[in-house]
């Protein structure tokens, strides 16, 4: 199976803090790959690196064999038309209606006539079940609806790669179920390659073909959902079971509490 994205020996740090230390991973074409890990370890950063919004300190990121950090700006903008990203907040343009939000990438990048754009937008909205909401403003949508509109916008140009940033975060069980079903259906119907960044274990185990678990600046486990479930790594098991304390400590690093109370911390 061909790799759409290959990350080799990537090291990335921000404001002096190392976020990734020598990471390698592959995103296979036509598959759904999940990147999981506790919050605050920079999962979103990984997507921004893949999209070329951030540049790694060391190592390489290849999209279809072409190095993303090494691209010239114009080429990068061309390549970005083949990918799209679903942001955690949806990132809809608040000054446009739902319809115009979805029409936006079409109007920017194609020369389609307005009547074709109208058809395409309605089809995309129908796919996410929100054709009736075409004339609403983003402020009038619930969180789950906004994310579905953002999903419709993300697939407007029929990209090859779609990156989901915490697609299930903060959703009620019903909209979570809707989103899981949608992501699955879209992948099967459009033959997309998907990267899902999340910490919602149960949802991911049902939709992912391959899973990477990130923690402590590196990959602590990878494999198919079956392999991950049966992993004997205590770190992976702590994450899957949601245990409060374990290899990932409950306490943020600090001096001992006795010292803190006695006031001779330094």
């Amino acid at each position: 199976m061909e790799n759409l994205i290959e990350i080799n020996n990537l090291t990335f740090s921000r404001s002096g803090r190392i976020i990734y230390d020598d990471i390698s991973l592959q995103i296979k074409k036509g598959k759904t790959t999940a990147i999981m890990g506790p919050s605050g370890i920079g999962k979103t950063t990984m997507l921004r690196l893949m999209g070329g919004q951030l540049v790694p300190d060391k190592g390489d990121i290849k999209f279809k064999g072409e190095s993303i950090p090494g691209m010239r700006r114009n080429r990068l903008y061309e390549v970005r038309r083949q990918m799209s990203m679903l942001f955690q907040s949806g990132a809809l343009f608040t000054d446009m209606t739902v319809f115009d939000n979805i029409a936006f990438p079409l109007r920017e990048h194609t020369k389609l006539s307005e009547s074709i754009i109208h058809t395409v937008v309605l089809l995309k909205l129908q796919a996410v079940g929100l054709r009736g909401a075409a004339d609403l403003m983003p402020a009038e949508l619930s969180g789950g609806m906004a994310r579905r509109v953002a999903l419709a916008r993300a697939i407007a140009l029929d990209p090859e790669l779609i990156m989901y940033d915490e697609p299930f975060g903060g959703q009620d069980p019903i909209s979570m179920g809707v989103l899981v079903k949608l992501i699955k259906a879209l992948n099967d119907a459009l033959q997309l390659t998907s990267v899902v960044v999340t910490h919602d274990v149960t949802e991911v185990l049902t939709i992912a073909d391959y899973i990477y678990i990130l923690a402590e600046k590196r990959i602590i486990g990878s494999g198919t959902p079956e392999q991950i479930k049966n992993s004997d790594s205590p770190l992976v098991q702590q994450f899957l079971q949601g245990e409060a304390d374990g290899p990932v400590p409950f306490h943020y690093p600090a001096s001992s509490i006795a010292q803190a109370f006695l006031g001779n911390e330094s």
Binding site: E78, R80, Q88, S89
Partner: peptide
């Protein structure tokens, strides 16, 4: 609200 980022990812400067 990530609107600037999402423009960038939509290949719009």
């Amino acid at each position: 609200t990530e609107q600037l980022s999402s423009l960038e990812m939509m290949a719009v400067d």
